[in-house]
């Protein structure tokens, strides 16, 4: 039995400790926002927060998350109103949408660490997230807009 906190809820799961966090979230905890894209830490569709850091849950063993804090897209905000989520809706970033939870989770960490990221900062932080539809131009715009929303909220 492994205990961890997911979206502020304490959870016990009975799985092989080598099971990736991704599959525990999706198939044991029904948190479908986190996506499988490659399984080898290449695409970023599976990004979640582990103690506030962006991690690729497809290569993060559940044993590593034991007694730690995990946040998924479902827990990023109460009402889906995190500045990044707001900016994403406002600028209509998504096309197919499959990669977007991962993009948003990566962007949220970037904005926590850098309140006013430049294009170069964004490119560096987001290079691990593939969008096959090619929404990158809007991802950059939305991150800047989210930074603005974040600044104005204070």
């Amino acid at each position: 039995m492994i205990t961890l906190t997911v979206n502020n809820k304490k959870i016990n799961v009975d799985v092989d400790p080598d099971t990736p966090l991704l599959w525990v979230l999706r198939e044991h905890l029904d948190l479908m926002g986190v996506k499988y894209g490659c399984g080898v830490a290449q695409c970023g569709a599976c990004v979640v927060h582990l103690n506030g850091e962006a991690v690729r849950s497809c290569v993060t063993k559940i044993s590593r998350a034991a007694n730690q804090q995990v946040v998924t897209i479902e827990g990023l905000s109460e009402e889906g109103d995190h500045p990044v989520q707001k900016a994403w809706v406002e600028l209509d970033v998504v096309q197919c949408g499959y990669c977007q939870a991962g993009q948003i989770m990566s962007a949220a960490v970037l904005l926590k660490e850098n309140k006013n990221p430049t294009d170069a900062d964004i490119d560096a932080a987001m290079a691990g997230n593939i969008c096959r539809c090619g929404t990158y131009v809007r991802v950059r715009q939305a991150i800047k807009r989210a930074a603005e929303i974040q600044r104005n909220a204070k």
């Binding site: 948190l31 926002g33 897209i73 989520q85 998504v94 949408g97």
Partner: peptide, 9 residues
Amino acid sequence: EGKKIVTGT
């Protein structure tokens, strides 16, 4: 579906 997608529905 924008809101649903950004909330992981």
